[in-house]
Design a binder for these strands. Sequence first.
DNA 1: GCCAACGTTGGC
DNA 2: GCCAACGTTGGC
Length: 155
Amino acid sequence: MQYWLMKSEPETFGIDDLAACPKGTDHWDGVRNYQARNMMRDQMRAGDRVLFYHSNTKVPGIVGIAEVVREGYPDHTAFDPDAKYYDPKSDPDKPRWYMVDVKFVRKLKRTISLQELKEEHADALEDLPLLRRGNRLSIMPVTAQQWEYILGLES
DNA sequence: GCCAACGTTGGC
DNA sequence: GCCAACGTTGGC
């Protein structure tokens, strides 16, 4: 089993929105970045665990846990001219963009903020892309050690 | 709202 | 294939 961190803007789709979905499950559409696409298409497996991160908000940070329940498949919103992330270059016969389905597992007891993660100055977190300067990846791998460390901060 | 960092686009 | 221009991300 692998671990991931996925960013979302709470204004658009936050952890509570995921929890409110039927079966707590929704597809992670709208990713239009090749690196993130590759991870969803090629690496994410059902059962993988996900740190749900709120970005572009007052207190950015990790707010919950989700689980991958469906592996990479074409992101149909790329084919829809009315969709926000429509991409005319993505062809249903040769899809450019992929998504996975994720399921709500639980909210953290408290938000583990980006600031807090930075202030840990932990060796374990040194290589976490989230903490690297200028990082813009919306999906990133998390090692088992990083996972344990981060959740160890929760209580 | 600002702006640094980064990815993508497109002219050459 | 280079690289300037542009658009987006996302913390602050």
